[in-house]
């Protein structure tokens, strides 16, 4: 075994979760000009770094109640297919949330990487509905405007919202195009082959799907605005 503690560690990062074709080295950030050898920032947390009540408040939201029971076992991260890319593992997000470290949590890109596959929710030994907590954190990040402006996921969510409010339904291609317009032209260009495929197979449609009683959606939303289900 290569990872035995008595042996010399391998040169690169651990081989685990690395695809054969992936580089063993994390690509170094492009730098211009001389940089200090190490960049440091403060990692210690003071009480003033906390937002007291943040965790408790979140636990009052339907679906998020069980967070208080977290035993930090890491099962969520162990089963999460995206945990390999996260800056904080799901377990850490739980700990940070419960510890009222609002800033760290809402700025973490973990919440935007969650693909809502519910594996963590099903596996959690404490029956914490982690996916629902991730949803709630995303909502709070959007509400507070702390997500990266051009980060595609909140933009997608926003576009989705607007389209549903207006039409009642989603026209996927229109949504995708708007998304690319608002985030990255480059990405759109990079996907030109995909677009051609979709055209070729008759799946590229820009004809907006609409419901008949289009006012319904807006009326329903207006009826509940300002009253989030959970906080009542």
């Amino acid at each position: 075994m290569s990872t035995s503690s008595t042996e010399t560690p391998p040169a690169g990062p651990p081989a685990a979760e690395r695809l054969p074709q992936e580089t063993a080295q994390t690509p170094a950030p492009k730098r211009s000009g001389p940089e200090p050898k190490i960049r440091i920032h403060r990692t210690i947390k003071y009480e003033s770094d906390r937002t007291p009540g943040f965790g408790r408040d979140l636990m009052r939201v339907p679906g998020c109640e069980q967070l208080e029971r977290c035993i930090q076992c890491g099962t969520c991260s162990g089963v999460c297919p995206l945990s390999i890319y996260m800056d904080h593992t799901p377990r850490q997000v739980m700990a940070l949330t419960r510890g009222d470290f609002k800033r760290e949590v809402l700025h973490s890109h973990t919440i935007w990487l969650c693909a809502s596959c519910y594996a963590c929710t099903v596996e959690c030994p404490q029956e914490i509905r982690i996916t629902d907590i991730m949803y709630e954190l995303k909502q709070r990040a959007i509400h507070e405007g702390v997500y990266p402006r051009k980060f595609p996921i909140p933009v997608l969510a926003h576009e989705f919202n607007a389209m549903v409010r207006q039409n009642g339904r989603i026209t996927e291609m229109v949504l995708v195009i708007r998304l690319f317009l608002k985030t990255s032209w480059l990405a759109a260009l990079g996907n030109w082959r995909l677009g051609i495929d979709l055209l070729r197979t008759g799946r590229f449609s820009l004809r907006p799907e609409r419901i008949r009683n289009r006012g319904d959606i807006a009326r329903m939303f207006d009826a509940i605005d300002g009253s989030k289900g959970g906080s009542a």
């Binding site: 339907p62 959007i142 989705f160 549903v164 339904r169 319904d216």
Partner: peptide, 20 residues
Amino acid sequence: DWNCCGATAYMAVDEAKACV
């Protein structure tokens, strides 16, 4: 006259609205 189910992306914006 069905409407969008309120799927995943929507859940992330506003759970209450998605449920509605």
